[in-house]
């Protein structure tokens, strides 16, 4: 990569990135990105850790202890419960939908569902919350037309929120599972049949075990997505479900108690721990399934 070529003329922004490369020892091109991430991601992380483990100007685990007590603990548990329900519900529904699409003979249906899934999986946040509020909120179209309020329906409950979260979780599961279902080679089914296995025996001994890493990976991914979601819940004003993201936001903006910023940081630390755990489960599963379905 050592070149005698002169560097690019300065002043053209597009060129500067590549123009430096001739004299580089290889990784100079990656330097700006690494530096940027170190600053933009590193400094907040350090600040977060510092704040989480500092109370009254001294190192302490008091914030962490506080974040695992009372309302904060309730919120943390609430988030974990909601995410678990969404992850498992979304995984089951998404798998059925994916299987229905994959076994269909209509290519157009498959393309349509995959495209729609790509869109909907990214469709969290404010618009989603408002669409559901307009549908099933207190004055939503279906709520008023069907008089659901009288039957005790509330969108702002645990199950209401779960219903809304599934809207972006199911498509995400479809996106995760379709490649895995496609990766089930027809030879495996035929080889199983050839060895005398029934359809059920094929699924029990081969199909389901082969899909399991992908399915579990999907569950974990859905859990992470629901666990981190804030905008959707925040935009559904009036939600009474305790969620850790709402607690962090309240503490940060001083909505509840002044001086709880550091507890918010400790809560954030809890969240990162949970998210990290989730990834620690996900990555090995993903590797294994990639090996099987190559």
């Amino acid at each position: 990569m050592a070149e005698t070529h002169p560097a690019a003329p300065a002043g053209l922004p597009v060129r500067t990135g590549g123009g430096n490369r001739p004299r580089s020892t290889g990784w100079t091109g990656a330097l700006p990105l690494l530096a940027f991430v170190a600053l933009a991601f590193g400094i907040p992380t350090v600040a977060l850790l510092g704040g989480a483990f500092t109370a009254d100007g001294a190192p302490s685990t008091a914030n962490l202890t506080a974040s695992l007590q009372g309302a904060y603990l309730t919120a943390l548990i609430g988030s974990v419960k909601l995410s678990a329900v969404v992850a498992i519900g979304g995984a089951v529904a998404g798998t059925f939908l994916a299987q229905a699409v994959v076994t269909s003979r209509f290519r157009a249906l498959r393309e349509a569902v995959l495209t729609a899934s790509g869109v909907l999986a990214n469709f969290g946040g404010v618009p989603l919350a408002f669409a559901w509020t307009a549908t099933l909120g207190n004055s939503g179209v279906l709520t008023t037309r069907l008089a659901l309020g009288e039957h005790g329906w509330s969108l702002y409950s645990f199950w209401g929120l779960a219903l809304v979260y599934l809207y972006f979780s199911v498509p995400l599961m479809v996106l995760v599972v379709v490649p895995a279902l496609d990766g089930l080679r027809p030879q495996w089914r035929e080889a199983a049949q050839n060895n005398g296995a029934s359809a059920w025996q094929f699924w029990r001994y081969v199909g389901i075990p082969v899909l399991t890493p992908s399915l579990l990976g999907g569950v974990v991914l859905l859990f992470g997505g629901a666990f981190a979601a804030y905008a959707t819940a925040a935009a559904m004003v009036g939600t009474v479900v305790p969620l850790v993201t709402l607690q962090i936001a309240d503490a940060l903006t001083g909505n509840v108690l002044i001086g709880h910023e550091n507890v918010a940081l400790a809560l954030s630390f809890d969240m990162i721990m949970v998210a990290g755990l989730v990834m620690a489960v996900y990555l090995p599963l993903q590797r294994r399934s990639a090996r099987w379905l190559r």
Binding site: Q187, A191, Q193, N194, N195, S198, V206, W292, L293
Partner: peptide, 21 residues
């Protein structure tokens, strides 16, 4: 006769081994 009750063993072109076993 259904495929799983025939008396014929088959070797496929490739990648037919069950990856999880």
């Amino acid at each position: 006769v259904p495929a799983n009750r025939r008396d014929a063993g088959m070797v496929f072109q490739s990648y037919s081994l069950f990856p999880n076993l």
